[in-house]
């Protein structure tokens, strides 16, 4: 059968191929909707809370690179999350970096750069915005 534009109109029973693709599509949709509902039900609404983990310091011709991983252990997203590292006993030797967004449960990595060995540096999140 065709319509007014000459295009075939599907009136036949669903073929095996169509049944398979529909079954896969339904399974995918059920998975997506299930995850979203699960996120909704388990959402604690906790504000963003950050943990900073250090990596191994790398020394490149007198400059020290300290990799950090920042994890948001809360549920809400933090925007413009600023991390600062300060060498103990000093006021001005500080390195900072800013992450655009860290979602609830997500981790991001960055590097702080120091002129002095930073193993004992104090590293913490100094501020963020609520998007």
């Amino acid at each position: 059968m065709t319509n007014s534009t000459g295009k075939k109109i599907g009136t036949d029973p669903r073929t095996k191929a169509e049944q398979v693709s529909l079954a896969i599509a339904l399974a995918l949709l059920a998975g997506v909707i299930g995850i979203v509902i699960s996120l909704w039900l388990n959402s604690s609404g906790e504000p963003a809370r950050f943990r900073v983990d250090r990596g191994l310091v790398r020394n490149e011709v007198g400059v020290y690179y300290l990799p950090i991983t920042v994890t948001n252990e809360g549920a809400e997203t933090g925007a413009q999350v600023t991390v600062a590292g300060k060498l103990r006993g000093t006021d001005d030797l500080e390195s900072t970096t800013t992450f655009d967004f860290i979602s609830g449960g997500a981790s991001v990595t960055g590097v702080l750069v120091f002129q002095t060995e930073p193993t004992s540096a104090e590293i913490r999140v100094v501020g963020y915005q609520q998007p």
Binding site: I9, G10, L22, A25, L28, L29, V32
Partner: peptide
């Protein structure tokens, strides 16, 4: 997205579900 156009109400609804799954994937 089908060469043969859906006609029945059920076909339109299930094709739309498939289309949504394809878009998500």
């Amino acid at each position: 997205f089908r060469g043969e156009r859906s006609k029945t109400r059920m076909r339109v609804m299930t094709d739309s579900l498939e289309a949504l799954a394809i878009a998500l994937l």
